[in-house]
């Protein structure tokens, strides 16, 4: 658990807004290089981490976790030190007014999303502002700001990393760094002798803006199997029981038409036999994860989708239970030792 806590904290502090992931590639290398045999990167911003098995001509198992996050981009610089922005990915604009942000220009500068006090509001009805109508207040003059910031520079919402009771953590960008953390923990604990596959962990870019990164990796790697990992909606109340998974009860196996049916069934049966705790969730058609494009890459790839329950998705206080990350790692290890074809 110590590794998970430390790695998760480090991952969450990395700036990896979709399209700007390369800014953090060295930090990923630092974290991953003690664990893996090879590290490579591509033009799109994906990083591929390889752990070799002892087998000659081993088959390839790809394990994907995206490391990009939703965020914003500077579109205009105004008098008085204000910036306009647009969203990158599905940002929840309800959380923006009065949020703290960092702008990654020539140097990192801080700002807050300004908001109009209720006293001054002409329209008294509360409504969610459009992102184009918001201004980021930096406190700089326009001239100084123009030296430091350019149109197109990325902006992220700031947030902390807070440990709650019962092994829960609230932090920014647990989507999908939680799963990346799980994949790293899994490979760290893998016994090379027992590996049935060469392991390719793809730290993929731009999931939040079109899910392209992982399928580009899959095209290059041509894996025999791919395990896609992403966060899923953690249950808060009973209203959404059938669309959610429960925090603290383990990682989930997603049953979907776009994940390989035989592999998914086989894995569920196998995990039961081995007494590895897990949940199940049904996503009949699209899963809205990297699974959907990886499964149709090249001549088609057999995929399995695993997910970690996460509450308050796409906010700076995404919340999860660390146990579920360990559970994800446990499942991945078990599968890496197994002949998946025979399940």
């Amino acid at each position: 658990m110590e590794f998970i806590k430390d790695a998760l904290n480090r991952l969450c502090s990395m700036m990896t807004v979709s399209g700007y992931e390369k800014k953090s590639k060295n930090d990923i290398s630092d974290l991953a290089s003690p664990i893996f045999d090879e590290i490579s990167e591509d033009s799109f911003g994906n990083i591929t981490l390889v752990k070799r098995s002892c087998k000659a001509n081993a088959k390839r198992l790809m394990i994907d976790a995206h490391f990009d996050t939703v965020g914003m981009m500077v579109t205009d610089i105004h008098e008085g030190g204000f910036l306009s922005v647009i969203n990158i990915g599905g940002l929840d604009t309800r959380i923006l007014p009065s949020a703290e942000v960092s702008i990654y220009g020539k140097e990192r500068i801080y700002g807050i999303v300004s908001s109009v006090p209720p006293h001054l509001k002409k329209d008294k009805k509360s409504s969610v502002p459009k992102i184009e109508e918001l201004y980021i207040d930096t406190g700089y003059s326009k001239e100084k700001l123009e030296e430091l910031v350019r149109i197109g520079d990325p902006v992220v919402i700031e947030g902390g990393y807070t440990e709650l009771l019962n092994g829960f953590v609230a932090a920014k960008y647990l989507d999908d760094k939680a799963c990346l953390c799980g994949a790293l923990d899994a490979v760290r604990r893998m016994d090379k002798e027992r590996l049935n596959y060469d392991i390719y962990v793809t730290v993929s870019a731009q999931e939040e803006t079109g899910k392209c990164g992982a399928s580009l990796c899959a095209y290059s790697i041509k894996p025999d199997f791919a395990i896609i990992t992403d966060v899923n909606f953690g249950a808060v109340d009973k209203d959404n029981e059938y669309e959610t998974v429960k925090c603290g009860e383990g990682a989930a196996v997603d049953v979907s038409a776009l994940a390989d049916r035989k592999l998914t069934r086989g894995v569920i049966k196998y995990l039961k036999e081995k007494n590895v705790s897990h949940q199940r969730i049904c996503e009949p058609s699209y899963t809205y994860t990297n699974n959907d494009l990886v499964s149709v890459t090249g001549l088609g790839i057999k995929t399995l989708l695993l997910s970690v329950p996460l509450r308050s998705m796409h906010t700076p206080v995404e919340t999860l239970c660390l146990k579920d990350i360990k559970s994800l790692a446990d499942i991945i290890i078990e599968l890496a030792y197994t002949d998946l074809e025979a399940l």
């Binding site: 979709s18 399209g19 700007y20 390369k22 799109f44 647009i86 990158i88 197109g152 731009q206 803006t209």
Partner: peptide, 14 residues
Amino acid sequence: KIKDSSVICSYELV
């Protein structure tokens, strides 16, 4: 181009 609704251009190329 830096971005449109289909793409975020490769920033080093920009």
